[in-house]
């Protein structure tokens, strides 16, 4: 279970949010909404431990993530705003490296399946379009069923309708299996979030 207690975040001398608390249990979906610059990405980066909050703590199963560090990192998949793929490597190589870094082993067959479900050829990423790159990154979700926590920053950005539907299915499926997902978006999504945090309010 993921718990955020009394989080505050300040960026560049401006307070983005304060006193923010929530709990995300297994099988729940958390949607973080808000306009540009309201701190959605910062909140997600705080929750995955890349950014330390100005105040407050984030707990995973009751332990502070600051202390858990890589033990916590092993539990989560974080897909950030940037593409997080190497231009000179192929989609399959990128996917395999991302999984190995996260500490979970995937077979070449699983990787092929993941790329197939996003209709990606195994080309060097520099020859892919913006949307296809995004697909190459999100293909990781197909092989990440075993990771209990997904943190997704704007998962629908740059995707077409078909790929967007696929991501929705993956998110729903993960929650149905008992995984927890937190995602940011300013678009409408058919995913039924069990909680919504609106940073505008």
């Amino acid at each position: 279970m993921l718990e955020a207690v009394d989080l505050a975040c300040e960026r560049g001398g401006r307070s983005l949010f304060r006193g923010l608390s929530f709990a995300l249990r297994d099988g729940e979906l958390l949607r973080i909404a808000g306009p540009n610059g309201s701190g959605k990405t910062s909140l997600l980066r705080i929750v995955c431990g890349l950014l330390s909050p100005t105040a407050g703590t984030v707990l995973w199963d009751g332990a502070e993530i600051r202390r858990l560090r890589e033990e916590y990192a092993k539990q989560l998949v974080y897909i950030g705003h940037a593409a997080a793929v190497k231009d000179d490597l192929t989609a399959a190589e990128n996917l395999r490296i991302a999984c190995t870094l996260a500490g979970h082993r995937v077979s070449p067959r699983q990787i092929r399946q993941a790329l197939d479900s996003f209709e990606l050829a195994d080309l060097p990423v520099k020859r892919l379009s913006q949307g296809q790159r995004r697909r190459a990154v999100l293909a990781r979700l197909v092989v990440s069923e075993s990771m209990p926590l997904w943190l997704l920053d704007e998962p629908y950005a740059a995707l077409d309708a078909a790929a967007g539907r696929l991501v929705e299915e993956l998110i729903d499926g993960h929650a149905a299996r008992g995984g927890a997902v937190a995602f940011t978006t300013h678009q409408d999504t058919r995913v039924r979030a069990s909680q919504v945090i609106d940073l505008d309010a």
Binding site: L50, R69, A73, A82, A84, V85, L101, G103, H104
Partner: peptide, 16 residues
């Protein structure tokens, strides 16, 4: 840093 893979390195399963 530019392509975003550094964030994934920081979240890897081994000590930084």
């Amino acid at each position: 840093h530019a392509d975003g893979t550094l964030e994934q390195l920081l979240l890897s399963s081994e000590p930084l």
